[in-house]
């Protein structure tokens, strides 16, 4: 009796959210799926996919996007991990203050952050160049040469998003169980061993969550590129999102843009499926092996 009533209330409560999600996610997705197959003459076909897959711009943007994703995500994970471990060693009140300060980049809109960095990296009046100049380093023209432009865009994204990674790792570190560590202590395990055999396996879950979210996010990188370089010089920093936006909005080729966006989803889906498999395989290993390793002799 109770369960029937509760489930009806539950359905009613989640209904608005489901309708909203259907409207803002499912409808545009289905619409763009249809439009990507719709031809100019009113028929249906794969022409738009053929055009996109046959264009050099698409593959160049695809390569750039992969490089951005690999570079930015790995930098964020390494940096986030190091900072989170460092924070763990600080006294609680200092840690809280640091954590509060680190959230600031997350609160700033990525577009605003990109504009801030654009000015900080400006070759005439930029703060970064002033500081480098003051310590005797000749600064590069950050946004002029393709390599530096790539680096500058990555820097902005890392600055904006690493705090998120730190927060996830930090909360995972804070919730680690004490017993295995006490046990390891009794067994005389070194700090390195504790890190390798306890901390790292325990962080597997959060690491995969961070990997999934950040990979999906960076794969859609747009703001920093649009503000800092507009995709240039040449096409050196044009990402898939920027190309899809230009194709659809600037050039009015909505169907081609839809095809491009849907093609973009494939690598994201593959990578996500791979990560999720990692979680499943990890689950078994964790429960089987870990207690055995520190079993009292």
């Amino acid at each position: 009796m109770r369960s029937k009533h509760t489930s009806r209330v539950a359905v009613l409560l989640i209904l608005p959210a489901v309708v909203l999600i259907l409207l803002i996610i499912a409808y545009p997705l289905v619409y763009s799926l249809f439009s990507s197959f719709q031809l100019a003459d009113g028929g249906w076909g794969l022409d738009h996919y053929q055009t996109v897959l046959g264009s050099k711009e698409f593959w160049s943007a695809f390569k750039n996007t992969l490089l951005f994703t690999a570079g930015i995500v790995s930098a964020e994970i390494v940096l986030g991990f190091i900072v989170a471990l460092g924070l763990q060693k600080l006294p609680t009140h200092v840690r809280n203050v640091c954590r509060g300060l680190m959230i600031i980049p997350l609160l700033i809109s990525p577009v605003i952050a990109s504009y801030e960095w654009m000015w900080m990296l400006n070759d005439q009046y930029g703060l970064v160049n002033q500081i480098l100049g003051a310590i005797g380093i000749t600064p590069p023209l950050w946004l002029v040469k393709p390599g530096w432009a790539f680096f500058s865009i990555s820097l902005v994204d890392i600055w904006v998003s690493t705090p998120f990674v730190i927060l996830v790792f930090q909360s995972a570190l804070a919730s680690l169980p004490k017993e295995p560590y006490e046990q390891a202590e009794l067994d005389g395990a070194s700090a390195l061993k504790k890190f390798l055999y306890l901390t790292l396996p325990y962080l597997r879950g959060p690491l995969i969550v961070v990997l999934i979210i950040r990979t999906m996010d960076v794969f859609r990188i747009y703001d920093a590129i649009a503000v800092l370089t507009g995709g240039g010089p040449g096409t050196a920093t044009t990402s898939l999102s920027l190309l899809a936006f230009r194709t659809g909005i600037d050039f009015g080729r909505m169907q081609q843009s839809s095809a491009m966006s849907l093609l973009m989803m494939i690598p994201i889906l593959i990578v996500t499926a791979f990560y999720i498999r990692m979680i499943f395989s990890g689950e078994g290993e964790e429960t089987r092996k870990k207690p055995a390793r520190f079993r009292r002799k």
Partner: peptide
């Protein structure tokens, strides 16, 4: 624009 910015950044 792609050709122009590339030329001025000496990518080609």
């Amino acid at each position: 624009a792609i050709a122009l910015s590339g030329s001025l950044a000496q990518t080609g």
